[in-house]
Amino acid sequence: MTDRLQKLVARPGEGGPPLLMCAVVAGDPHVEATVEYLSTLADAGADMLELIVPFSDPTYHGAVIQRACERALREEVTWNHVRQIGEGFRQRNDDTALLASSYYNRILSLGHEPVADLLSEAGFDGTMVTDLPWNEATPLREALHKHDLSFVPFVAPTTPRERLEMMDAESDSFFVWTGHAGGEVTLSRRDFEASMAEFRSVSDRPILSSMKISSGEEAAEVVEVTDGVLVGSAIVWLVEGRGADVGDRLGALAGELREHLDAPPKDQT
């Protein structure tokens, strides 16, 4: 794990504020804009950023991110563009964690080692691969670990305890909870809380929840039982809306999320 990520991952355990991770699609609408958006989100309070490297067939993403990938594909985003975005962002920011995410075929098109080399050189802290389950990820994980980069595992409502234990024992950083797989969130609040309690009984690592969160209030509710949130489609939706003030609107949403996450938890008594 990079020092930067290590510091962030330790924070919830030390009683610090919940983690905020925001996602944008690389090259949506163009590469230079992506660097701007990442910087804006970081300045407004994001602790971690997910750079979605667009894939032609984003099977497990919802409609908003699917459309963003389509827009980005017109830019023909290559791994060199990913390098440019990482380097451009790091010229402005050294504290916010940056993770590249994609589908496995994009990783394979360059190769495990070259991807790990590139991400390390460009200032990334790790990666998430939507269609690469933990059991199939050993070659990529080994390549990443040579550079102290993390491979972040997902947890789903269908993940059994034995799998959680396996992933907890072998992983190094944090988890992302996916309450959906591109479709609607179908989990009740009670089931979600039960899942989080189960997770907590297995792992001390932070878990960030990705559940189509789109407002500060929703985020505050979710972090009552998790260590942070991953906000993707709400951010990408603003990018889709475009307009001259998209940067301001991104900053405003990230600021709202930050503010609600930092507010003291509601009195539960």
């Binding site: 389950p133 059991n135 997902f154 789903a156 799998r163 797989a181």
Partner: peptide, 11 residues
């Protein structure tokens, strides 16, 4: 192999 999202692994 089984290259799928985590949600589908166990099913």
């Amino acid at each position: 192999g089984r290259y799928v999202a985590e949600a589908i692994w166990h099913p």
